[in-house]
């Protein structure tokens, strides 16, 4: 690890100020960034920890029934505090990594990193969430722009994420055997105005919506509705853990299982 400056502001305003310095890098739970730095593969000049910003930690509901999660909220806190209001999201958070990861890693860190095999991007995109930063609100559909790429500006901070709570939802994760990231993960959410299906782990473009499945489920929210669909097309990841064809196949299987788990 190379030397770096470290600060831990206590307000969003101070964090925004700290991020203005040259070479500043926001630090969530550090579950990706710190191992990368230890391997000398990243060398930020200064780290701005967001975990000391109390107003960015916690889960609450607004009057419209949306669930708001602070950007520095740990996976363990989401698993605990969202269990009643948005059980599918809580279950997803409860199955990320191991207890150490879940108690350090944050939702803002995960969404800012946008690992193509991470779980949270599927929940955000599958729920049509809004990513709220210190300067603006970004719809999930506009936020994920590619593998490890997002609409965030370099010094922008995710302060919270707002999830519309669906009528029913489920996340099916098929583990990559070594990392236990998603080899493929599918998040299905049923809303009054339609169904969203978001897929992580499968595509070189990162998380994506499977529009054919959404259309089919919008008309008939049942396992049968998706059983007949061909595998999603697209630029699937090929690696030592599975071919593109295998991943595409898993998308179909997991989507159907998610719908079944929703009672469809």
């Amino acid at each position: 690890m190379y030397n770096f400056e470290f600060s831990k502001p206590e307000t969003i305003q101070d964090a925004v100020e700290a991020m203005k310095s040259d070479g500043a890098q926001a630090l969530g739970g550090g579950q990706t960034l710190l191992p990368t730095m230890k391997q000398r593969l990243a060398s930020p000049e200064s780290l701005v920890s967001l975990c000391g910003v109390a107003e960015m930690v916690g889960v609450c509901e607004d009057d419209a029934g949306n669930l708001s999660v602070g950007g520095a909220t740990s996976h363990a806190q989401v698993a605990d505090q969202a269990a009643k209001s948005y059980p599918a999201l809580a279950a997803l958070a409860a199955n990320i990594g191991d207890p150490a990861v879940r108690n350090r890693g944050t939702i803002g860190g995960s969404l800012a990193n946008n690992d193509p095999a991470a779980c949270y991007p599927a929940a955000a995109l599958g729920s049509g969430a809004s990513i709220i930063t210190n300067t603006r609100e970004i719809a999930a559909d506009d936020y994920f722009t590619g593998m490890f790429e997002t609409a965030l500006a370099e010094d922008e901070i995710i302060t919270s994420v707002r999830f519309p709570v669906p009528q029913a939802a489920n996340y099916q994760k098929f583990d990559q055997p070594a990392s236990r990231f998603a080899l493929v993960g599918v998040f299905v959410a049923k809303y009054a105005d339609g169904v969203r299906v978001a897929v992580t782990g499968a595509s070189n473009g990162g998380v994506f919506r499977w529009s054919e499945a959404e259309a089919a489920l919008g008309g008939d929210f049942s396992a049968a509705a998706v059983s007949g669909l061909g595998a999603p097309s697209g630029d699937m990841i090929e690696d030592l853990h599975g071919s593109g064809a295998y991943r595409a196949h898993l998308v179909g299987v997991l989507t159907r299982r998610a719908v079944e788990a929703c009672g469809g």
Partner: peptide, 24 residues
């Protein structure tokens, strides 16, 4: 039987060179 594989690509790079890809 089920998980572990030290696998090199044709250039001799160890593809499963960390616990992220080598399944214990």
């Amino acid at each position: 039987a089920l998980l572990e594989h030290g696998i090199y690509d044709e250039n001799g790079q160890l593809l499963s060179g960390s616990l992220m890809d080598y399944a214990m």
